[in-house]
Design a protein around this nucleic acid. Sequence first.
DNA 1: GGCGGTTACGTAAGGCGTAAGAATT
DNA 2: AATTCTTACGCCTTACGTAACCGCC
Lengths: 291, 291
Amino acid sequence: MLELRHFRYFIAVAEELHFGKAAQRLFMTQPPLSMQIRQLEETVGVPLIVRDSRPISLTAAGEVFLIQAKEVLRQSESAIKHAQLTSVGKEGHLIIAVTSASVFSILSQLIATFKQSYPYVSLEFKEMVSKDQIEALNQNDINIGLIRSPVDQKKINIMPVQVEPIVVAIPKGSDLADFESIPVDVLDGTALIGFAPDTAEYFCKLSEKLFTTHNIKPLIVQTATQLHTIIALVAAGLGIALVPESAGRINIENFVLRPLALDSPPQAELCLAWNKNDHNPAISSFLELLK
Amino acid sequence: MLELRHFRYFIAVAEELHFGKAAQRLFMTQPPLSMQIRQLEETVGVPLIVRDSRPISLTAAGEVFLIQAKEVLRQSESAIKHAQLTSVGKEGHLIIAVTSASVFSILSQLIATFKQSYPYVSLEFKEMVSKDQIEALNQNDINIGLIRSPVDQKKINIMPVQVEPIVVAIPKGSDLADFESIPVDVLDGTALIGFAPDTAEYFCKLSEKLFTTHNIKPLIVQTATQLHTIIALVAAGLGIALVPESAGRINIENFVLRPLALDSPPQAELCLAWNKNDHNPAISSFLELLK
DNA sequence: GGCGGTTACGTAAGGCGTAAGAATT
DNA sequence: AATTCTTACGCCTTACGTAACCGCC
């Protein structure tokens, strides 16, 4: 049966063109080396070395076999190296799911930092709402989720990566835009663009809580799922909206952000989520870098 | 020490995801298989298989190692196959020397036939005068020479591939062109384009022999090395010339070929020459095809 | 005749099989 | 409790070393 040993021995003989020197290089004696080469030639089925001349020489078949043999050894070295790199999370592949809103926050910076430290870990992104992310994490369809909602499943670990205050988005030129901060009771009865309850549950509930706490009833004139849609509607003058501070990164004109006049305004959390049973080492690399 | 065995075993386990099934597939029992896999993991330095769950699964490192392991096995198979093909001359490289580019016209058909039977033998051509070819054959710089002169060296084998009569090249419209064949004594005193004695020794001597045998003294108005140069000079009307019949393939107008009016006109031989000690199997393939 | 590769033979390492043990479902 | 992987141990293959034997320069 052909083994790597045969390749190693043949390369030594082919390069030294001298059984004795080759054996010395391999820290062994000539006879067994001779035997192994003979065995190799038998498995290959053709002579690789011309022995009836000194120095010995390679047959044409031996010449091509030498090149291929080196390639085989190089490949097996590479197999080990790649396995090692993968094992410590320096190489590999990560599938990261993001909610549309999180795209505007710190994600881009995060990716850049990660790619700098782990250039050989390829990243794949999928856009998913939080509920689908949890499902995908459970089924190992994705490695990391980037979500708002706190998860209550023991298989899923979470780690907050960003906490940002909820602020008020106001059409440019509106009277409210002149305030430096917005007193909460001003919102009572005001036209407001809200997050859709079914697809943007987290922000929706965050707002509702604020309203009930302060006993306010704004006039929700429109709902939307995507953050940038809401900002676009605000900019169009349809009303104001309660949005995370990172909405400021959205490239739309004609709106301003003002903080709420509260000691402790509502906070929106952005969390990394991953399956505890997913042992892809690149996940650890990713998490480690965020601390 | 890592061996191909480890790759073979790992692939079986990784594909079956079951030590027992894998062992069965490898015609062995589980325990030694388990040992070998453990050995493999030790040499690689990282765990490749997750054992603490059933069915067993691969680590991320194991996944990449599986792909690489298959590649290593594929490569070693390929090494054997290529060595075998090379050994029987179905694969390889031949360096063929020709005396002048014009020989290509004769060769082209030969090359096409060879390429059809041996598509994986690459051919390389070099232009060399006969003397240099012999030298190159001795030094194994070329594998095959295509020459006119008979070689007198015991290391060099030769085989004639083409025998053609010497004919007379005549400018179109010349009086001689009206003859169907040219009596030799007509050449006496006629303006003639000759081969250069130093670089086209073979043709030169062939002509000289004809002249002395028939006691003729033509007027050599010009000499040239290359056949197509001589034909060009004939076509230009400078004189006639004694050339091999294959000159008819040269794509020049304004000249005609006429046979010599002799029972046994001089013959020009084209020979293949190769070094007896050059065991490149592709040479045999080439020679075999010419018979 | 010396250098270099092969053949002959003895040894010892190690791969493999059998049997018993541990762990997961 | 059953299936499945691991540990323990003995055998037997085989790779390797030593010694003697050819075959070229």
